[in-house]
Amino acid sequence: MSKFQNKGKAEMPELNTSSLPDLIFSILFFFMIVTSMREVELKVEFKTPAGTELEKLERKSLVSNIYIGKPTREYRVKLGPQSRIQLNDKFAEVANIREYVQDERESLAERDKPYMKISIKGDKDTHMGIITDVKMELRKAWALSVVYSATQR
């Protein structure tokens, strides 16, 4: 009768999904790039102790790492099996820590400086001597907020 009469069933238009894979792929690539594996090449081996009273590290940009452990196999020949300290990409001595802390602190924004944290990633089998030396240096450098990195038990 009228112009607007339904001409039978209206067919649902099909959705074009051909671009969906591309979309998912770009999310995939995003995640692959964003999840950075680890920034520094480790030259010491460490297995952190297991604890129960652990807290998460909130803002990773505020955290500087100090690695303490046995040198990896390729360096062990040269340096022996004694525990060593690694700062950034190279082996360091206890005396270098203060400088390292100052550099790390300088790299932070002014308002973040008081919240700087030092994460000590120490090997289970390390002796306390080296750890206490490091702690003493950290105290002298006024880096008093320290985290002993560990795994949840």
Binding site: E53, L54, L57, S119, W142, V147
Partner: peptide, 13 residues
């Protein structure tokens, strides 16, 4: 790389 650890506060120098 969720980092967990025991948070401690060192005394002043």
């Amino acid at each position: 790389d969720t980092d967990r650890g025991l948070h401690v506060r060192l005394p002043n120098p």
